[in-house]
């Protein structure tokens, strides 16, 4: 008898299928069941060819799924029968729990009784629930949970397009940014922003902070200011200037215990001293980015 293709794979999958039944449902029979299935498949393949084998595989696995369902129904109903029952004369039971179990049993029977129908219903529900989730996620972000900036409907994100590489939302260089600022873009103002991780060290303990580097004109675009301290000065981004940082509200509370005296203090970031000049409000957040701090984007002119 010639072996049918993927015999080992089929055997392995069938074993996985059997493991989905309640524990010990097939105990003592596993080997025999797999053997019988493989032998059936071999016989079908030899006598009627690959398409008949394909059909047998589908029906065989459906049979396994149905039997698994029966074993679960049995397990559930037998588990119920073990419990002391107040009214043994009424096998169906009249208590609330008994009615739930009866409904569950009925549902499982119906679901395992017609597998094709059940599969299509479950598949349809899955697709519909997935689509709802996707649509709601988009609506929630776009309509119901807008950006945490004033006039957010007038804010746009500008990317550089690299047609040679088919890269639509690519980064832009600092000189590009300078060029675009001078150009007639129709934008009221333009600020550059990038994400950067810094290492914060205090008392010999290091923490990785993720943050934003922004041009000093960021508030003219985002219309947000620190609630404590000040925003960056125009000269704060110069390489020779003293390094400054603004803390996110969460960082201020978590690491500095919401100490208002933190403004003016010097902390260690990336092994360099940074002076804390301000703290953002709790509402400040960037979309898709949890920022622990904001630093000035160094001027590369």
């Amino acid at each position: 008898m010639s072996e049918f293709p993927f015999r080992r794979l089929v055997a392995a999958l069938y074993r996985v299928g059997m493991s989905l039944a309640p524990a010990s449902a097939y105990s003592g029979f596993e080997g025999e069941i797999v053997d019988a299935f493989l032998q059936k498949c071999s016989s079908t393949y030899t006598r009627r060819g690959p398409w008949a084998l394909f059909r047998d595989l589908i029906v065989g696995f459906a049979d396994l799924a149905r039997q698994n369902g029966r074993e679960w129904v049995d397990r559930v109903t037998r588990g119920d029968a073990k419990k002391p029952s107040g009214s043994p004369a009424d096998p169906e039971g009249s208590s609330f729990l008994a009615s739930i179990i009866r409904d569950l049993k009925q549902g499982l029977r119906a679901a395992t009784g017609n597998l094709g129908y059940s599969a299509s219903v479950i598949g349809t529900l899955g697709v519909v629930v997935g689509m709802n989730t996707a649509v709601f996620s988009v609506l929630d972000n776009v309509l119901f949970d807008p950006l945490a900036f004033p006039d957010e409907d007038r804010l746009v994100m500008v990317y550089r397009h690299y047609p040679d590489y088919d890269w639509v939302r690519g980064p832009m260089s600092f000189p590009d940014y300078r060029d675009w600022q001078g150009a007639d873009t129709g934008l009221e103002s333009l600020a550059a922003i990038t994400t950067e991780d810094y290492t914060f060290i205090a008392d010999g303990v290091a923490e990785r902070w993720s943050g934003l580097e922004v041009t000093t004109n960021f508030p003219s675009v985002a219309r947000v200011e620190p609630v404590l301290g000040r925003w960056f000065a125009q000269t704060d981004n110069l390489l020779e200037s003293e390094r400054v940082v603004i803390l996110a509200h969460g960082t201020w509370v978590r690491t500095f215990g919401a100490d208002v005296e933190v403004v003016g203090r010097t902390i260690s970031l990336n092994d360099s001293p940074y002076q804390v000049v301000g703290v953002m409000g709790p509402d400040f957040s960037m979309p898709n980015k949890e920022a622990d701090f904001i630093a000035p984007l160094p001027n590369h002119d």
Partner: peptide
């Protein structure tokens, strides 16, 4: 078990088949 499957399949004219999981259950 497999002998039972074969016997049932050969004898039933209406294509009644027993599959392994159902059979052993």
């Amino acid at each position: 078990g497999y002998g039972i499957m074969q016997e049932v399949e050969e004898r039933s004219s209406e294509g009644f088949k027993l599959w392994p999981a159902t059979l052993y259950g």
